[in-house]
Each structure stands twice: as C-alpha cells, then as structure tokens.
C-alpha cells in the first residue's frame, strides 16, 4: 500500500498574521489557550511578525530524515509513515539531545515539571492518520497554510513560483534543506531576511553522525589488533630477555624484535 507522506506548504505571501492557526492548534491538541511569543512546551506553532510586514509561522518541520529521530538514544521520537514526527514519553529519558540536534530549534521541554516531557508539533498525527487535515491548515482563512501529501505540495509550490515569479523569491525552503522537510515555505523575500536557518546542507544531518558511527566496528577491530599486538610484542621482548637460551627461533618478525 502506498501511503503518501503528508506535509504543509506555508505561503508567506498569503499570510495575514491572524493567528488562527495557533488558536486552532491549541484546541485540537488540548493545549492551554494562552499563546506564547515563541515555541514552548505549550505553544506548538506561533506566527511572528517581521518588520517588513511579513508574517512567518514557526513549527516543527517534520524532516524527511529528522536529526531528532536519529539523535534519540531510546527512539522516543519517530517518523511515522504518514509524515509526522511523533514522541513517546514512556521511553524518553529527558536527555534533551533532540533539542541540541534540531536545526530549527523546535523541540521544547517542560522545565518546571517533575515529570517533564519533550513537547512539539506532531503534525496532528491522530487526525492525519485518519486522512484529515491538520488543525492549523483547517483554520487558515487565506490558505497560507495548505495541507497535502508532500509530493503534491512540492508541485504546487513550483507552479506558484512559475506562475508569478515576481511575487516569489525563487526558492522552496524545505525542499532540499537537511534532505527535505515535510513543512515547506514560500516567501516573497530571501529566507535569510526572515531569520530562517540558511546554513543548512542538502543532506540529512544524521548522515554526518552515521558516517562516523559506521566506523565503530573498524575502530574496535583495529584497536584490538593494535593493543593485542603491542601486548604480545612488549611482553615477549621481556620474556626473551629473561630466558635467552630457551628461545626457539620463531618467524622472522619475532626475531627482528628481539
């Protein structure tokens, strides 16, 4: 069965900054109604206003290959087949490495709870699983946030830029960044001007760590041989010295060392 991985397309040119997305997010996810001015454990999406009268949503990007998922040592964070990156508190140890790893600074922590959880947007996973749209996309009055499967959204974004190149800066943020994200953005100005992280490579961050971790078996094997050989060499020298006449001529290598 071909499950399409869903995502969001956020068109900054269409956003009027009404904040309906944040409000509905609170409702559908049972979060306290107060909306903070940045992402917190209880506010999973915010709309920030830039001085050039643009409104920019912030939320989890649901990366195709998420750094948080790779970094979580107990797999408390997982990427579901439907697209959302979800969290399971029953295994989480609260190490907060996901927060260090996330290039978008999305996961938040319940700093004042004795039983703290990592909290972040889950792309309305229970709704998406049932084929429904996310709370934010449903509430958006201008269709600045559109829900759909990622492939369709990419086509939609490309078509919009093509149809009106003057309106858009020619880049889909999230198409390739860190190997692609499910939440993508279109903007009238370069993303740098909107304080987006524009220093990201086009491959998943987990590639970096995995390429290092892959070496572990080699390092262990090499190290074991090196240390074992050193032990044999340095201790044999002594034994040989102690009982010189008892030594039988061994292979060439050994005699070299004597």
């Amino acid at each position: 069965m071909a499950i399409k991985s869903s995502g969001l397309l956020i068109d900054i040119t269409r956003c009027i900054g009404c904040g309906a997305c944040s409000e509905n997010c609170k409702k559908v996810n049972d979060l306290p109604p107060e909306i903070d001015d940045k992402l917190t454990a209880e506010t999973w999406t915010v709309v920030r206003e830039k001085d050039n009268d643009l409104h920019v949503r912030d939320l989890c990007r649901h990366c195709v290959e998420p750094a948080c998922v790779a970094s979580c040592l107990v797999a408390a964070l997982t990427k579901t087949e439907h697209g959302p990156v979800v969290y399971d508190k029953s295994v989480c140890i609260g190490c907060r490495y996901c927060m260090v790893a996330c290039p978008f600074q999305v996961p938040c922590f319940e700093w004042h709870s004795p039983n703290p959880r990592i909290r972040k947007c889950i792309l309305c996973e229970p709704r998406v699983r049932e084929g429904k749209s996310t709370g934010c996309a449903e509430a958006c009055p201008t269709e600045a946030t559109v829900f759909g499967d990622r492939e369709t959204l990419v086509e939609m974004a490309k078509a919009r830029i093509k149809a009106d190149p003057k309106r858009y800066h020619d880049h889909i943020y999230g198409l390739d960044e860190v190997g692609g994200t499910a939440v993508m953005f279109l903007s009238p100005v370069p993303f740098e001007d909107l304080d987006f992280n524009t220093h990201l490579a086009n491959y998943p961050l987990s590639d970096i760590t995995w390429n290092i971790l892959r070496q572990v078996p080699t390092i262990v094997a090499g190290g074991a041989v090196f240390l074992g050989a050193s032990y044999w060499l340095f201790n044999r020298r002594e034994k040989v010295k102690k009982a010189e006449q008892m030594v039988e001529p061994g292979p060439e290598k050994e005699t070299d060392d004597v």
Partner: peptide, 21 residues
C-alpha cells in the same frame, strides 16, 4: 536528565543511529 527513571530503556529500546546510545 529529565526522566531518569526511564534510563533502563537504553537497554530495551536501543537506537544504534544515536551517538548518545
């Protein structure tokens, strides 16, 4: 860590892709 009572999960729920594991 925030939830030390879950630390034993490292044994039962390993993620070998994590350097922290």
């Amino acid at each position: 860590v925030g939830r030390p009572w879950n630390m034993w999960r490292v044994i039962t729920n390993p993620n070998i892709h994590s350097p922290l594991y």
